[in-house]
Design a binder for these strands. Structure first.
Length: 572
DNA sequence: CCCCCGACTTGGCGCTACGCGA
DNA sequence: TCGCGTAGCGCCAAGTCGGGGG
């Protein structure tokens, strides 16, 4: 039973132990008792067969496959396997997308890799540079190994499959759950990150570096101290780095990311955690409140657009853009350790172009290096303010020099209590969906797939607004879909029965929607899961007599269980 | 007061299990 | 029943934002 289920229990069932625990909780505490069995460490390295070797200057070299006693806790051979795996993945993906860049051709990637691998090889190793190393025997071997594994799995008997599943389930039973205030809740990803290469998004400065193997001593466990889990690594006992009992946080374990040194946490599974459920609920309530107050907020910042104080003017102009574009706020970044991506408060003058008729074009590389580009019209006062910031031809100059994430959020709080910049994205997404669905309330006896299409189209609009894009090339997919559509159109023409005709039409409709998504390179899942209030969807489904399971998968149905009783008349 | 960092949400990608059409 | 395409899931990176410490 999850928290969300418990919330649904009626008042007379409140004698449950869980409720007692909740009432006895101190202010700020997230839990009273927390039990779990610790976390799972990466398995030891499995050496390659003795005859599998890299070549250095055309001569085979057997790399050490046993000694991992170095700063990265990996063997020399393991490092070679990491790169060979990456090369294999690149080769495979390059077949689909010819333009795709390979890591091995990227000097930053290879230099980063070499500098780390050198540490593992040691100072007196025969291998003196990466250029002379031929990884292809290792690459070839790992492909064979993976193919063998696949066919072995196919050939497995029913009993063997069952046994394998039981073994997996046993590990999951041990590590996959935490018991919080007496309620069993799944843990999301209970294994520490295995050692490997750091890839990153876009042109990350650390790409190609080796992430070391995490050891038990690197890990902090958060748990009720009366029930400290045993530390075990590959069947051997070990010692946790530390054990804490912090009632104010929801994580089970934490450790430093081996390269960025950021804390990495092991949390509860997001779809089933009651902490996530209730913060989600709050998030959408806040977004709704923003919508209810938007006119008043607009009035306030419009007045500030012509403030005599430059800082206030900048803040108001930034909020105007936030209101129109719903872009991310943008936080300061460390250029040596992070990609140089931007957000609203970190935009430079080089990211804006002034066109005639109060039109501006904003163009920048956002989260995960995804391009944002939009041309739109602004009010003349906003146009003047933006131009004012960029009068001098210095392109490196910031668009809002006196605004940062903190001051922006500070200003937003003067417009509406608790308002933050990212609330605008949630509000915009949800209100667009509400509007779209309001215009598309199907007759209950419309075919289900048509109702689904109405939802999907609205969802695509939201994803476009939030700039949720797929990075990979989609031209292949677009062509295929176009072909398919004309095929079905032909079929429809030649249909003999009305049933055949309807079935062809259905395929046309479905593939047209897919085409729309592919042509725009748009990804809908993020907005569906994080930005669109499920209450809107539930209300619409009830009105349209549309089964909600056609829209949400099992995980989302669990995460949004709190919204399922929303009445059909509900409005965002 | 400011900036750094802890905790949590958001986000795209690749793999795989599964469902559907031929 | 078989092969194929894709939804969904897990992985891990990359954001936001407030609070704590200097």
């Amino acid at each position: 039973m999850t928290y969300c289920d418990i919330k649904k229990l009626t008042a007379e069932k409140r004698e449950a132990k869980w409720w007692l625990e909740q009432e006895n909780k101190k202010q700020g505490d997230r839990w009273t008792t927390l039990q779990h069995n610790g976390i799972l460490f990466s398995p030891e390295y499995e050496p390659l067969p003795p005859n599998i070797m890299v070549k250095y200057n055309k001569k085979p070299v057997k790399l050490d496959s046993k000694n991992s006693n170095n700063s990265l806790n990996i063997t020399a051979e393991e490092g070679a396997v990491f790169l060979a795996q990456k090369m294999e993945q690149d080769d495979r993906l390059a077949e689909k997308d010819k333009k795709r860049k390979k890591a091995i051709d990227d000097p930053v990637f290879t230099t980063n890799f070499w500098n780390d691998w050198k540490k593992v090889l040691g100072p007196n190793h025969i291998i003196k540079d990466l250029k002379g190393v031929d990884f292809s025997p290792v690459q070839k071997y790992i492909v064979e190994r993976s193919n063998n594994k696949k066919s072995a799995k196919k050939a497995m008997s029913k009993e063997e499959k069952k046994e394998e599943k039981e073994q997996k389930d046993a590990v999951k039973d041990l590590y996959g759950y935490a018991v919080i205030d007496g309620v069993k809740i799944p843990i999301g990803g209970y294994a520490v990150q295995p050692p490997g290469l750091y890839i990153g998004h876009g042109n990350h400065p650390l790409r190609g570096r080796i992430k070391k193997r995490i050891q038990p001593t690197d890990v902090i466990i958060n748990v009720s101290k009366t029930n400290i889990p045993k530390c075990s690594i590959n069947g051997k006992p070990c010692k946790w780095g530390a054990v804490v009992e912090d009632h104010e946080v929801t994580w089970i374990a934490s450790y430093r990311h081996p390269l960025t040194e950021e804390l990495t946490h092991i949390f509860l599974k997001r779809d089933e955690s009651h902490f996530v459920c209730s913060s989600d609920q709050e998030k959408f309530e806040k977004a709704k409140k923003l919508g209810e107050n938007i006119e008043e907020i607009r009035k306030k910042y419009t007045k500030d657009l012509s403030s005599s104080k430059s800082e206030t003017r900048q803040l108001a102009t930034a909020v105007y853009l936030l209101d129109v574009l719903a872009i991310r706020p943008g936080t300061e970044k460390n250029e040596e350790k992070e990609s140089d991506t931007l957000g609203l408060t970190t935009l430079k003058c080089s990211n804006i172009k002034f066109d005639i008729g109060n039109h501006v074009t904003i163009n920048f590389s956002g989260k995960s290096s995804i391009e944002f580009k939009k041309k739109f019209k602004v009010s003349s006062i906003v146009y003047k303010n933006l131009q004012g910031s960029c009068e001098e031809k210095d392109k490196k100059k910031e668009l809002f020099p006196n605004v940062n994430a903190t001051s922006l959020n500070g200003y937003l709080k003067t417009l509406l209590p608790d308002l933050t910049a990212k609330n605008f994205r949630t509000w915009k997404a949800s209100s667009i969906l509400q509007e779209e669905l309001d215009e598309n309330i199907p007759d209950p006896d419309t075919p289900t797939y048509e109702k689904k299409l109405m939802y999907d189209r609205a969802n695509i609009k939201v994803a476009l607004e939030l700039n949720h894009k797929k990075l990979g090339g989609s031209s292949d997919r677009v062509e295929k879909l176009k072909e398919k559509i004309s095929e079905y159109k032909e079929k429809k023409k030649n249909a003999k029965t009305p049933k055949q005709k309807a079935s062809a039409q259905k395929s046309i409709d479905l593939n047209t929607a897919k085409l729309e998504e592919a042509e725009n390179n748009v990804a809908t899942s993020t907005s569906k899961v994080n930005y669109i209030s499920p209450q809107i969807v539930v209300a619409w489904c009830k009105k349209a007599e549309m089964p909600i399971e056609k829209i949400y998968n099992k995980a989302s149905l669990t995460k949004f269980i709190w919204a399922m009783s929303t009445p059909s008349t509900w409005k965002f």
